[in-house]
């Protein structure tokens, strides 16, 4: 019996190796993967396809039965729409600054807490608190407790040193600064956790060897740790870009896109265009542009960032 099982396993392995699969192999694969594929199609593929298709229509949310196929007119309109272009620019600034800042801060925190010290687990737990808070709640706290112009903590502290603080949320560019601060505060713990986990598994002997070779701390970080964590860093950057480029709650609650559209990012633009002004097709065209732009950027980062690693490990 046991020898028959082993023989079947050998046959299956041989078929897989040579690219030939039996009907039962396909059935087994379908049983395992099928439900996941169906779920993925329902929650990810269908809405994406629908968004792309609807972006080719002059389609109004409040009159869904009246739609006209307009080919790529919505896309043509987008690139002459100053409000859309402004939103794209704000999204670029917001995402770039936020991703860079969280990567630097998260990595530094992970490096700082790498060595064992008393109460390390408590510090770790405290550092992750922002991430587990509801974005809407934490944004409201920042808005009313910290950034409020008249009774906020920041302006009170500034007044102690004789500085008249601005109306942070109501002025430019301070409004953009506030949403960046909240997002950096909110997302740095994520980067910290990923980098901390990566550093935990980092081979100590490599660092010891570098130390013996005379490398100081920053040289070890710069020439040993960061290059060896490149795959983790690339993955984290990509993940962070996809989160920040689609950020909605923090901005909606903190500034609502104002003042004068100075903090209106693309997600907010899509929301306003499709759900407030009912230009469903046009709004979705903006959403598709955002999706394609983020996808291409992430692909490029992956291509450039992981190239050396693939060549080294020969896994590509």
């Amino acid at each position: 019996m046991a020898s028959r099982d082993r023989s079947e396993q050998r046959d299956r392995a041989a078929r897989v190796t040579h690219g030939t699969r039996s009907a039962s192999d396909w059935r087994a694969a379908a049983t395992f993967i099928g439900p996941a594929l169906v779920a993925l199609a329902l929650v990810a593929v269908l809405p994406t396809v629908w968004a792309i298709v609807s972006s080719l229509f002059d389609w109004h949310f409040h009159r869904p039965h009246l739609r006209t196929f307009v080919w790529f007119d919505n896309y043509r309109r987008l690139f002459g729409d100053s409000r859309f272009l402004n939103a794209a620019w704000i999204t670029f600034i917001y995402t770039s600054v936020s991703v860079m800042a969280t990567m630097v801060l998260g990595t530094l925190l992970a490096l700082l807490t790498k060595a064992p010290f008393p109460g390390k687990s408590v510090v770790r737990a405290l550092l992750t608190i922002p991430m587990i808070m509801t974005p809407v709640v934490s944004t409201l706290v920042w808005k009313t407790f910290f950034f409020e112009a008249d009774v906020g903590l920041i302006n009170w502290l500034l007044s102690l040193v004789g500085v008249d603080g601005p109306a942070w949320v109501a002025r430019s560019p301070s409004a953009l600064f506030t949403i960046l601060v909240v997002n950096i505060w909110f997302m740095t713990p994520f980067v910290y956790l990923v980098m901390d986990a990566a550093l935990d598994g980092f081979p100590q002997e490599v660092l010891d060897a570098a130390h013996i070779d005379g490398a100081n701390y920053w040289q070890r970080v710069h020439h040993v740790i960061l290059p060896m964590l490149r795959a983790t860093i690339v993955f984290t950057v990509i993940f962070r870009i996809t989160i920040d480029a689609r950020m909605f709650e923090i901005i909606h609650v903190m500034t609502g896109g104002g003042p004068a559209r100075d903090t209106e990012v693309l997600t907010l633009w899509v929301y306003n265009a499709a759900l407030r002004n009912f230009h469903l097709g046009y709004g979705n065209a903006g959403g598709v542009v955002l999706m394609v732009a983020v996808g291409l950027l992430c692909f490029a980062i992956m291509l450039v960032g992981l190239r050396g690693i693939y060549q080294r490990t020969g896994t590509s």
């Binding site: 008249d150 009774v151 949320v169 609502g256």
Partner: peptide, 16 residues
């Protein structure tokens, strides 16, 4: 007016 009014929403002037 207070500087922050440009960001004030419904009822935000009540505390003052």
């Amino acid at each position: 007016q207070p500087d922050g009014t440009l960001a004030w929403d419904y009822g935000d002037h009540i505390p003052m």
